[in-house]
Nucleic acid binder design. Structure first.
Lengths: 151, 151
DNA sequence: GCCTCATGTGATGTATGAAATTACAAGACT
DNA sequence: AGTCTTGTAATTTCATACATCACATGAGGC
């Protein structure tokens, strides 16, 4: 099953954007992610609509974060992606006439709904600032005394 | 994101198999699932190796469940599939050198690991017999007094 | 004004993996 | 022997996340 990596990419981008005041171009972000400028623009569109980032065109333009990292949760970022499916498994048939299949679906749905609620609740408590703090921890642990690799 | 429907299919099959003593052919099962006999054999192989079902060849052959539905949990079935990924999202880069990306991955991993543990625990408590009981409920609620559609 | 740099977005191409199909070997009953 | 079944490898199909291409639009710099 191929996985959706947009949440991971978006968080990565936002944290880098929070480290600088200068706008970052889609091209620059794409190189950081090992991705493509057009893909970056597309996944940033949701964040722009959510009011978390701004884009400026022309010379010296690019993307800039316009909220403090304390004000952005992982849930906000997830919702900016359009709240994609969290689970990799689903029903073979969403509207089965077979009663057995209906019960199987109901059983699976109950499990996934419980787990979805739990993980979204977790996402709601996770702020970008907390991830930033963890980056600082990693930096002081692993590269104490020399320039850190933030690429 | 395309979803993995094998768990749903397997549970569906097993419950139908539990309703009869006669062996069910892969072809018959495939028609029930709207699938293909070869696909059925493939997903049943894990259950056979787990000791939950048996296959007999030749005339009158087919698949038969060899454990009581009280003795099979959803977790058993999930494991028979090879414990596939539960989550539809993942890391863009599993071994990043970028410290920011490492922290993002760690944050996401913590959330998914917690949720995975919770849902597997739930699967471990769910027995096929409980789904069977729910089928009975649906039958008495929806088709009281006439033959039920178990196709 | 014109050129360059940037975003915005529709259209198309590529890669991946689940599912479906094809093909054939082997076992079991009639 | 002939038919029905499972067991599997090989191949094709199909959905879709991601990449790329093409071009319009907006914002400096000259």
């Amino acid at each position: 099953m191929r996985q959706d990596t947009r949440l991971s990419r978006l968080l990565h981008v936002l944290l880098h954007m929070a480290q600088t005041d200068a706008p970052m171009t889609s091209q620059h972000i794409a190189e950081m992610l090992g991705s493509n400028a057009v893909v970056v623009r597309r996944i940033m569109a949701g964040l722009r609509e959510g009011g978390y980032v701004e884009a400026e065109r022309g010379h010296g333009g690019g993307w800039r974060i316009i909220r403090r990292t304390e004000e952005i949760t992982v849930l906000d970022v997830y919702r900016s992606l359009g709240s994609p499916d969290l689970f990799a498994f689903g029903f073979s048939n969403p509207q089965p006439s077979c009663l057995v299949e209906q019960s199987v679906n109901a059983t699976i749905a109950e499990s996934t709904e419980t787990a979805t609620a739990a993980i979204l609740e977790k996402f709601a408590t996770l702020r970008l600032s907390q991830i930033e703090a963890e980056v600082q921890e990693r930096m002081s642990k692993r590269t104490r005394g020399r320039a850190a690799d933030l690429g």
